[in-house]
Amino acid sequence: MNIFRLLGDLSHLASILILLQKIQSTRSCRGISFKTQALYATVFITRYLDLFYDWVSLYNFVMKIFFIASSCYVLYLMKYKYRPTHDPSIDTFRVEYLLGPCAVLALLFHYRFTLPELLWSFSIFLESVAILPQLFMLQRTGEAETITTHYLAALGAYRALYIPNWIYRWFTEDMVDPIAVTAGIVQTALYLDFFYVYFTKVLQGQKFELPA
């Protein structure tokens, strides 16, 4: 564990708490892509299967349980409790265009040809693009509630912080995970556009609005 990864994980934790706070305080999931949330639940369930047979640490165990439980809880909130506040007509990204290529990539790039390893690889690739339905929705509506942009910023910061973590590990442990690093760099790059607007508008006290 190093400071970059710890801050990254805490940022990830914070992003989920901000998302829950957004849904509870506005009693609405307006502006949140159900598809992205469903992809994250898929990512956590397929990646953390090792929960049942590989012990890493208490920290690792608790975080995995939290990520699976909270992502399923968000799906429940969106699908049942606040269902009327979700508008599927603007959440139109075709997730099959993500699931298919990620499955192919997992078959091509993995560490062992076993089902858990293939699912792990699949989850890494899927996580890197899972935010696309959300960003697509943002692009379509052209604006977002400030709390939603804080959620996205915390999620993006988590990914960005993993990059110095990998550089640090490369130097101190001589360890490189090429699959996670490649997917992680792609994932962080997807946030660049969002970060630009977040820093130049939201953090200056303005509303998140994209140019028409």
């Binding site: 990864r5 975080m63 995995k64 590990r169 360890m175 490189v176």
Partner: peptide
């Protein structure tokens, strides 16, 4: 360097 999965990461 050692190339392999970083399974301790989340």
């Amino acid at each position: 360097s050692m190339w392999g999965p970083a399974k301790d990461e989340l």
